[in-house]
Simulated assay, not measured.
Amino acid sequence: MKRFVKILKIILIAVVIFISCFTFIYRNRIKLYINIGKKYVYLQKKLHSDIHIKDINAMNTIYAENIVYKNTNNVPLTLDIYKSKKKLSKGSPVILYVHGGSWVYGDKSIPSALSPLLDVFREEGFTIISVEYQLMKPGVGFDKLVSDIKDAVRWVYKNQYEYNFNTNEIGILGISSGAHLSLLAAYTGDNEFKDDSNLEVYPSKVKYVIDILGPTDLNSLNFSKATWDINNILKSIPNIKYVVSKYSPINYVHENAPKTLMVYSKKDTLVSYKNSTELYNKCVENGVFVKLVTLENSSHDFSNLSKQDILLLSKEVLKFIVQNSPL
């Protein structure tokens, strides 16, 4: 009996030591999970009150605004840096935000629907960078836009020491046409889509991509529902069928593609839900880590985004980034 008690004490001491070591080693990650969980619970309470999506505060406290990251053909393009609120020893992970707008509209201001999510990560040491890209017009096509996003990533690598960026931890989050560009930028290699000679020597690799309502196969889009501007531009492009195929992200999936989170709505009439399932299946076939989140009620412009969809979107984006956190 004494021998049994002695062995049991040894086992208990070993378990305590193991738990203590595990907690110490992963203390930052555990703390991140706890803090993210608290913020999610807070968001739940806010949404279960009478708050509406338009009432959520937008991102503020820009650390550096309108930094020119490239200037080709006398067209300066800028980015905004929302600095992390906590200093990390290995440098700050970076999330690049790419706006939507049918490739012809929009700006780099971060929408209020995403602000609470991104602010959570700033508090945990992440830097948020919102990227401007040249909008489409006759003579400026998809290749230029994708190059702009990849050059923004290259700029992060170039300036990692000045801003204390952790370039092993770069993610891209895009909405609509911005998600389309983000997927193309994430799935293509360092030597593809180069535009600025001052940046071309730097990598463009990212760890993950978050695709919210992005067209993955341009052949599936019903451009009759699109704006006059984009239709007019597309009509001016020779060999449009070749161009549409060339710039469809689904054609660039490969086994080393970054981890991918996709968020799509069954009620989206502009980018059909089929875009999500086909890309999901292509990622699975190639062994790429992928997760598909389905919204039930939201239209493409988020005009009727329900509280349930907001919470689902928030939870899955938070969880995905935390799982890919270096902490």
Rank of each mutant, 00 (worst) to 15 (best):
T23W: 12
T127E: 09
V263Q: 02
I321N: 06
V5L: 15
I321Y: 00
L114S: 02
K282Y: 03
G178H: 00
S109N: 15
N57W: 15
H300S: 07
K194Q: 10
Y252E: 09
A64W: 02
K194N: 14
D50K: 06
M1S: 13
P203L: 13
R29T: 12
Y157K: 05
K70Y: 11
P116A: 00
V68Q: 09
V263S: 02
Y69K: 00
K83A: 15
K291F: 15
I36P: 05
S325W: 04
Q308R: 13
Y157R: 02
G37M: 03
Y202H: 03
P238M: 09
I30C: 13
K6L: 01
Q323G: 14
A64Y: 07
T167W: 01
I34H: 09
L279H: 08
D309F: 02
S224H: 10
K266Q: 15
K319I: 01
F24P: 08
I321Q: 04
Y133P: 06
L47C: 01
Y97H: 04
S236V: 10
A179H: 06
N275Q: 07
N251T: 04
E316Q: 08
K39D: 14
F4A: 09
A186C: 02
S265K: 07
V120T: 14
K46Y: 12
V104Q: 06
N168I: 12
L218A: 07
L318S: 03
Y163A: 06
K319E: 07
P76D: 12
N286Q: 13
F302I: 07
P249I: 01
F4M: 02
I230D: 04
V131C: 12
R154M: 08
I19L: 08
S306P: 03
N166I: 05
V146Q: 06
V120M: 09
F4E: 01
F302A: 01
S298M: 07
K45C: 13
K150E: 02
V284D: 13
K39W: 06
T78C: 14
F22Q: 09
I149S: 00
K274M: 06
F289H: 11
K86Y: 09
I233D: 02
D196K: 04
G100E: 01
C21V: 12
L32H: 14
L312M: 02
T277Q: 04
N275A: 05
D301S: 10
I51Y: 15
K144C: 12
E278M: 13
T269G: 14
L221H: 10
N28S: 15
Y280P: 14
K266Y: 15
R154Y: 07
K158G: 12
K205G: 10
N286S: 05
V271P: 12
K315I: 04
L8M: 07
V104M: 04
L88H: 06
P203F: 11
S147H: 10
S276M: 07
K207C: 06
P258R: 00
F142G: 01
L181S: 01
L88Y: 10
A113E: 11
I62G: 11
